[in-house]
């Protein structure tokens, strides 16, 4: 028989859905800022595999000459991003939700099995827990990345007043690169995350909006 099973608490859903547009706008305004000094690339010596970013990309998304606007949006939304992230972490700690999210010793091996499963090399079903090892690693890593963005961001926002932090992170230019790399990390996270959500289907997606999943339980277990 069918049953509703509570999955994501209301607070987590709010944190999640506030974070999504705010982080998106942080990345977008960050792109406007980055454009004014777009020095990063993937490559070595004179070989460049990927330039961040090609001119065609800038033109397609109307990026150029928005430094001032980018900075102001960035320095307004940073407060929302930081506060929302902080409240999320506090909530997971207080509610005990962290137990589901924090990786354990077996998460790494399990994450590998999840990868094999997802690319079709492993047929055994995934663990029936709320979050499998791969999810635990990914969702914990992305929170740490958020903390990293706040720290590297603060280091390039106030490199003199917070000189100790900037120096700790390797100096101003390194901190800027770290801040950028974390942003690329979010984009990669987003791609995998959305692919997984699509693959997992409606029931799973709805749980992040409405909080519950419809599950089949053997009659009598209710």
């Amino acid at each position: 028989m069918k049953q509703l099973r509570e999955k994501h608490p209301l607070a987590i859903r709010w944190f999640h859905w506030i974070n999504f547009p705010v982080l998106a706008l942080m990345i977008w305004s960050g792109l406007w800022i980055y454009w004014a000094n777009d020095v990063y690339r993937l490559g070595w010596g004179n070989t460049t595999l990927l330039r961040f970013f090609p001119q065609s990309f800038y033109e397609a998304f109307d990026v150029p000459y928005k430094l001032a606007r980018g900075m102001s949006w960035h320095f307004v939304l940073m407060w929302v991003f930081a506060l929302n992230g902080l409240l999320y972490v506090v909530y997971t700690l207080v509610s005990g939700e962290w137990r589901e999210l924090l990786p354990t010793r077996r998460s790494f091996a399990e994450a590998w099995q999840v990868v094999l499963h997802d690319v079709g090399l492993r047929k055994q079903p995934l663990p029936p827990r709320k979050f499998n090892g791969a999810q635990q690693l990914a969702y914990t890593a992305v929170v740490l990345m958020g903390a990293g963005s706040l720290l590297t961001g603060a280091a390039i926002y106030k490199p003199t007043q917070l000189a100790w932090l900037t120096t700790l992170l390797g100096g101003y230019e390194w901190a800027r690169l770290e801040h950028f790399a974390l942003t690329i990390g979010y984009v990669l996270f987003f791609v995998v995350h959305v692919a997984q959500v699509i693959k997992a289907g409606w029931n799973n997606f709805r749980a992040m909006v409405a909080g519950f999943e419809v599950v089949d339980v053997p009659a009598g277990d209710a």
């Binding site: 028989m1 069918k2 049953q3 509703l4 709805r206 909006v209 409405a210 909080g211 519950f212 419809v214 209710a222």
Partner: peptide
């Protein structure tokens, strides 16, 4: 005990409200 139909109806009601 709710029937499956009732469960699904409840699911639809809660989904509608949340969305």
């Amino acid at each position: 005990t709710p029937t499956d139909e009732a469960v699904l109806q409840e699911a639809r009601r809660r989904s509608r409200r949340s969305f």
